[in-house]
Design a protein around this nucleic acid. Sequence first.
DNA 1: TTGTAAGCGTTATCAG
DNA 2: CTGATAACGCTTACAA
Lengths: 344, 344
Amino acid sequence: MSPLPKSANRVTANDVAARAGVSQSTVSLVLSGNPRARLAAETRSRVLRAAEELGYRPNVLAQGLVRRRSYALGVLIPDLSNPFFAAVVSGAEKVAAKEGYAVFLCETGETGAEQHVEALKSRQIDGVILDAVGVSGLTPESLSGMNVVLVDETHEDYPGVVSDAQMAGELAARHLLELGHRCFAFIGPAIDASAFRLRERGYTRTLSAAGCAVASAALRRGGATVAGGMQGMRALLALRPRPTAVFCANDLSALGALKACAMARVAVPGDVSIVGCDDIELAQLVTPELTTVAIPARELGARAARLLIRQLTGDGHAPPARATRPLPVRLVTRGTSARAPEAA
Amino acid sequence: MSPLPKSANRVTANDVAARAGVSQSTVSLVLSGNPRARLAAETRSRVLRAAEELGYRPNVLAQGLVRRRSYALGVLIPDLSNPFFAAVVSGAEKVAAKEGYAVFLCETGETGAEQHVEALKSRQIDGVILDAVGVSGLTPESLSGMNVVLVDETHEDYPGVVSDAQMAGELAARHLLELGHRCFAFIGPAIDASAFRLRERGYTRTLSAAGCAVASAALRRGGATVAGGMQGMRALLALRPRPTAVFCANDLSALGALKACAMARVAVPGDVSIVGCDDIELAQLVTPELTTVAIPARELGARAARLLIRQLTGDGHAPPARATRPLPVRLVTRGTSARAPEAA
DNA sequence: TTGTAAGCGTTATCAG
DNA sequence: CTGATAACGCTTACAA
């Protein structure tokens, strides 16, 4: 193995041309060129064979240079350790790969999306999928001229693929209401325009409509992480009266909340019911299994990729691909929710 | 006084040159050129300022074309839904980004690594990190001329970054032995040359040395997934005598095994002890918490990236970066392991 | 129908 | 020190 794939290794369109006894541009024509190019069948097959024999693969960088597209997409997420994001990425990667696009993965953390976008720009990226990176936190010009699709976030300037986040909150609320709960709480982050916020809204509104406001002290803000959930739940457990029903903005925080209960020897669902959101695989691994609202994460990613690619392919002035209708969510009733305990 | 940015869209080195009143090649020299290039301080700063004002970003595709490097890495993993792989990717992406490399994420599934590698090749990828994709399953020439670094897999042709997998198995075995267990089992996949296999070996050898062979019926083969773990454990529970100690090749399967026990109302760790491997975040979320052997996943990814990049940068004939010493692993004793139940 | 040639945006080698 | 100029591998008018 020489450190750098020296030279001599890579076979170019020129090599193919030489072997087929045609010019390089002819090779280009038959291999990647317009279908409307009319080549002699004989020439075409000679080229094809030569290419085959030599194992020719067009250099995408060079193609990109002249076509001004890189056939690469960027996917930006805050944190790959959240299985939900992993699923989104996975879904996006799969359809991208099938369509001949490669995906650059960028983990932005809480901040730092900006730099990643810059880096992608200088790679002539064809478009980006942003999930939960907070578009409004970016300087407007950083995304200018880019093809972008948002996931589970809405912004007037960009199309987005979303789940029915408000419905998710509503489903959670209705479920808990039906179980007879009267004292509610919520744990989740305070990011505007995010799905988290909509979940919260659907939840609180449904509760209000049923005459059950959630006290502001019962509204715990924090990261949508395990740690955030634990913290939030600890605070809730100290409240009097103690909430008997808690909806968490995502499964990770719900799992954290569940854990906090276990550590505090608070029975779930005996003393308090917990409902998460996402339905990640782990939700079924804990005991009791987590009641949650399923969000089609892979599908979100897949659609985002499709939408983005369509936007790219849509030569000229096709309708600039507006946001699609929200993907349906559904309540998955498992073991962490039960009838409210009798009032003390 | 100076020309304005040409077409609103992309600003090139030519635009900068025009504005700075120098030639394009000079721009190239000061911006990306050798540090040893000796430019007039005055010229340099003029160029720098012009570039700054225009917001110039060199086109990496073009750079790649001539330099024959793309400054991009590929990371191939079978499945992003396994948090362990997600962590590896995350670690690799972080150091790659810091070093100015972008990473193409490729999820290969059980098979299909080949095509992804081909796709990456035509993108002039600088190198790839392969984690658990089974190098030996690839046609040799598909990786020829590529810079590759393996993660947790050993192969004589490529350098690899590994954890001390055999030690992981040994630690699990010693732990269970110390707890007085005598009837052992193992759940894991049958992939040669993988860390899984080494974990198994470390486990079985340590047991043998202690006079406790693991019966072949107690050796369950299957995917290193939740489903695989559940299946394996179900089979084990039917065995007579029933094993009291089970080591699983990874946490996902351990979690599956734990779940299977819960469903079968078998007490963990009362009736059977379970030890996993990886120490993914979820391990602490289940009840009881999973005893496991911690593998530094992020660190593996990070090191792989560093090693790969060093290999790339190592112009000329630096020692071709052999495999590094195994990263240490450590036993994390939690709630799924306890003293063996009294013999019936 | 196929070849010639002009780029795409950079880097790199030389002259001046 | 700086500026032509030739690649890099490919696409695409435009000629032949």
